[in-house]
Amino acid sequence: MKLGVFTVLFSDKSFDDMLNYVAQKGIEAIELGTGGYPGDAHCKLDELLNNEGHLQSFKQKISDHGLMISALSCHANPLHPQKKIAEQADEVLTKTIQLASKLGVPVVNTFSGCPGDHENALYPNWPVSAWPHDFQEVLKWQWEEKLIPYWREKNDFATKHNVKIGLELHGGFSVHTPATMLRLREACGPAIGANLDPSHLWWQGIDPIEAIKILGRENAIHHFHAKDTIMDQPNMNRNGLTDMTDYAQMRDRSWYFRSVGFGHDQKTWADIISTLRLYGYDYVVSIEHEDGLMSIEEGFTKAVETLQPVMVKESIGQMWWT
């Protein structure tokens, strides 16, 4: 396994400075944003797709720093009911898959998206209750008319380009649990899998270790994010899990993101890493930092220090003791 980082953290650094910085920290892999919510500070799609010389120089710089690209990421909502927003997200996703293929990067990360509740809707509608029955009707329409047709086509497109799609299980989007992930994968194809992020599981009340087992049995984990979450029980009692309190009001929220090790201890992260290996994941653990209590540099450094000792670097060849 390799320790990586989602370089959107360092969007204020030049490409060269970012490479120097993360390599000095002992990072082995980088995940690059290509647009959408992460932006494209270090990976310009059109420049790389249309200029072979630039593409080769880009690859060489990464290689010279002893790094690899674990994934290209373009998190957005390609199923947004406003056509202009959806089309822009779809274009970025399509180009990102094409670029990943050219670079030999095996995974593209994004969100499943969330449609509206009918063809003329203006905003996404995320049903989270089984009753009243209106929500079930909305959910059925979204999956049958929007999610499955769109992602079936993208599964086939990615397969032709020898790329897998890692959907981040995130509240507010249609695929947000292991069950919804497997439902979409079954309907659309095996190129669709998870970019599994424990932080979004904890706040939904899902044990990440059990989620790894559920998805790992189906070979459905394509990429992995390392980010932590802390739960504030008094605020949970007041606001519930689906807390709409602004992220900046951390004292009042039911949960908020932390740097790795500051929501759950190192033993928990060791168990997560071990379970990933147990279920066949031997790829990159990509640090994502969205901690409102620490600077980027401090939070990133502490995440590296927490994870490096528990990373499993060498797979066993033979059980010599049996």
Rank of each mutant, 00 (worst) to 15 (best):
D17E: 15
M18V: 10
L19A: 06
Y21S: 11
A23R: 04
L32S: 04
G36M: 01
H42V: 11
K44S: 12
L45M: 09
D46G: 03
L49H: 13
L49E: 13
N50V: 05
H54G: 06
Q56W: 01
K61W: 07
S63V: 09
L67N: 11
M68L: 12
S70E: 04
A76M: 01
N77V: 04
H80L: 01
A86P: 12
A89N: 01
K102M: 14
V105N: 05
N109R: 04
T110A: 00
F111W: 11
G113N: 03
D117M: 14
P124H: 02
V128L: 10
S129P: 00
W131Q: 15
D134V: 13
L139V: 03
K140G: 02
E144N: 15
P149G: 04
R152T: 15
N155H: 15
L167S: 07
L167A: 07
M181Y: 06
A187W: 00
C188S: 12
A194H: 10
I209C: 07
I209S: 08
I214E: 14
G216H: 04
A220F: 06
F224S: 08
N237C: 06
T242C: 04
M244R: 13
R253H: 06
Y256N: 11
F257L: 09
V260S: 06
F262E: 12
Q266C: 04
D282W: 05
Y283K: 15
G292M: 07
G292F: 03
E297S: 12
E298D: 13
P309V: 02
V310M: 02
